[in-house]
Write a protein that binds this DNA or RNA. Structure first.
Length: 603
RNA sequence: GCCCCCGUAGCUCAAUGGACAGAGCAUCUGACUUCGGAUCAGAAGGUUGUGAGUUCGAAUCUCGCCGGGGGCGCCA
């Protein structure tokens, strides 16, 4: 490892940590202990404040060596305690720290709270919106997410993908990477043909109203219903598919028109959600290149052409020489020559590298496609691009179910449409803001309701691990109290409220001269962890770390708010606390923005 | 048959292999003539599904079992 010193939590104090680490090393080197790596953690006690390391690993190693040499060492915990107190005796107190203690095998270094406070607050206020952002890594990361189907509805299951993908992009960017936000819109396929069939036969000449996506989805559901009730109509759909394949001008024109309706609907949705893309790939552009690629793979002997009796396949395990079934067989072209998802995904995988040459190509796709994506990556390697295949990464997440473990399915009508959810949430938020803040203008109320509702909707998608199934439930989605986005937004609003009433410019940097209140210490502690948590969230691709921090930060601020007067405090305390409030507001705002949630000024 | 994920308080979920397993919701009790009560304080709630193993130390890592969900040749 290039950097054996693991610094966590307090990135702002890297230099001091490194200095102390070196000093501990040289102290240990004076004893016959084996080499050990020194890891730092925040002291886990509430109201206590500093960094901590333990000597258990070193003690265990030492004990093993002693035993091997025929000695009987002390029990490990006692040894660790012994080492800790020896280090504690020899360690000089570094500047910025108040005291060092050795307890239970741990070495705890407590920050000088006043000095630390000034340093954290000054850093946040100097860096402003950039607080939490990392140094450029020089890496380019392409993230494909959302991937909607035209001619279909947009429901809460799709929402998790968009919300996660968007937050992931923000986080990777904040960590110092160049991020390319890519969408892949599926505008061809059997679902489109079904829609066209239904439209032509029963809705010819109709146009969508305000809510385009809903209308498109309704017609799609209707098509499925009609076909289920009268299966003999399937032949008409097959005929239509044939006309599409032959690029019949009439069908092509209808496809173009209806596709456009869906695209416009998607734009509306992305605008509401506040999500943007740098590049959009379309299914129809990949169809032909995909078919050509398949032919090439057959020629090269990578794919096996079983037509006309069977499809074109890639026997991945066989090609890799794997005995145990692992990647199995990937079908890359239908026996009638029409394309599949895989036909296009192989081309798309190549195209991404040809166009952008990313260091990492991320696919935000739900967990059910894990095997499929591994097959795509392996095939990419077999096609002669093992280097690219290694740079592909499946960001997998679990699905959104309805209560009772009911799967959301657009065909069975068990959907909660995104439009409905947003409308309901806005309505509910509007009622609350009318009650809580009646002096706002109607326009302000609408705006507040909008950002609060969206925050509330997005939060549950981000606040649980991606491997956990989200159960959508109306009551929980519309509950704005407790562990939810509005709670965090409210802390931001309260901070803003104090700053608004300040009436003077924000005081310059100040060293507090009073004893800090425990809630102040806790608040500063969480603020100081932001840069480190951003790095961690990016490295492990877990937005959850930031929702956790945002919630803790908000909670700490609300505690502080209840315990510590700011505006009415005496001079030094007032100045220091005003700056702390400003720093807390900034940290909350930065976190919320990374999560794709708007921090409101009032609510 | 093979593979993947989940199991922590009544419910929804947290917890880099570390110090007493923490929040919210729900339930009960309280908050000063002070910056916004979408808030705060307190009570109650646990053999981390189960049995072994690794380790100084396991909710976390390994294996078995139980329960739930998902994926495995022409769906996307």
């Amino acid at each position: 490892m290039a950097n054996p010193i693991i610094l966590q939590g307090y990135l702002m104090f890297e230099r001091e940590q490194e200095q102390i680490t070196n000093e501990i090393r040289s102290i240990l080197a004076q004893h016959p202990y084996p080499k050990a790596k020194i890891e730092w953690n925040p002291i886990p006690f509430a109201g206590k404040w500093g960094i901590s390391t333990s000597f258990f690993q070193l003690a265990a190693q030492w004990a093993r060596e002693q035993r091997a040499a025929g000695h009987t060492p002390l029990p490990v915990p006692q040894l660790a305690a012994q080492i800790a107190s020896r280090v504690r005796e020899l360690l000089s107190l570094p500047s910025g720290f108040q005291r060092v203690e050795a307890v239970n095998g741990y070495l705890n270094l407590y920050f000088d709270p006043l000095e630390f406070t000034r340093r954290v607050v000054d850093t946040v206020l100097e860096q402003g919106e950039r607080f939490g952002w990392g140094e450029p890594t020089g890496k380019r990361i392409l993230v494909e997410f959302s991937q909607p189907n035209t001619h279909k509805a947009f429901h809460v299951g799709h929402l998790r993908n968009v919300v996660l993908g968007d937050a992931l992009c923000n986080i990777l960017e904040a960590a110092g990477n160049e991020v390319i936000r890519a969408n892949y819109i599926n505008d061809t396929g059997l679902h489109v043909i079904k829609w066209l069939w239904n439209y032509q036969k029963y809705h010819a000449g109709e146009e969508p109203g305000e809510d385009k996506t809903r209308w498109m989805g309704d017609l799609y559901a209707e098509a499925n219903r009609r076909l289920e009730e009268n299966p003999e109509l399937e032949s008409e759909v097959r005929q239509l598919y044939a006309r599409w394949d032959q690029r019949d001008p009439e069908i092509l024109a209808l496809w173009e028109k209806s596709r456009q309706w869906s695209l416009e609907g998607f734009e509306q949705i992305y605008a509401i959600l506040g999500v943007r893309f740098d590049h959009i790939f379309y299914d129809h552009e990949l169809e032909k290149p995909g078919q050509e690629l398949v032919e090439e793979l057959v020629r090269k002997g990578i794919a096996i052409d079983e037509r006309p009796r069977g499809p074109v396949i890639v026997r991945i395990d066989e090609l890799l020489g794997l005995e145990k079934e692992t990647y199995r067989v990937l079908v890359i072209l239908r026996s009638d020559g029409t394309s599949l998802y895989s036909t296009k995904d192989l081309v798309l995988a190549l195209k991404k590298f040809e166009l952008f040459n990313p260091d990492l190509s991320v696919y935000v796709v739900d967990v059910r496609q894990s095997l499929y994506l591994q097959q795509i990556y392996k095939t990419l390697a077999l096609m002669g691009h093992p280097d690219w295949a290694e740079r592909c990464y499946h960001f997998s997440y679990e699905v959104v179910n309805l209560p009772g473990n009911v799967t959301i399915a657009s065909r069975e009508g068990t959907v909660v449409l995104l439009e409905d959810l947003i409308r309901e949430a806005r309505q509910r938020a509007l009622e609350v803001v009318r009650e809580k803040n009646p002096h706002l203008s109607a326009q302000e109320m609408e705006e507040v309701a909008r950002v609060v509702a969206l925050g509330a909707i997005k939060y549950p998608m981000l606040a649980r691990d991606a491997t956990k199934i989200v159960t959508f439930d109306w009551n929980a989605a519309l509950d704005f109290n407790g562990q939810a986005a509005p709670y965090i937004q409210y802390a931001h609003v309260r901070a803003n409220s104090i700053l608004r009433k300040m009436e003077t410019p924000l005081p310059p940097s100040v060293l507090p001269t009073y004893e800090l209140h425990p809630t102040e210490i806790q608040l500063i502690d969480w603020i100081s962890r932001l840069p480190g948590e951003v790095q961690k969230a990016a490295q492990e691709m877990r937005p959850l770390y930031l929702t956790n921090l945002a919630y803790e930060l908000a909670r700490a601020f609300n505690d502080f708010y209840a315990e510590c007067p700011v505006l009415k405090a005496d001079e030094n305390m007032r100045a220091a606390r005003l700056r702390l409030v400003a720093a807390a507001k900034q940290a909350l705002a930065n976190l919320l923005r990374m999560l794709g949630i708007v921090p409101p000024e009032v609510m």
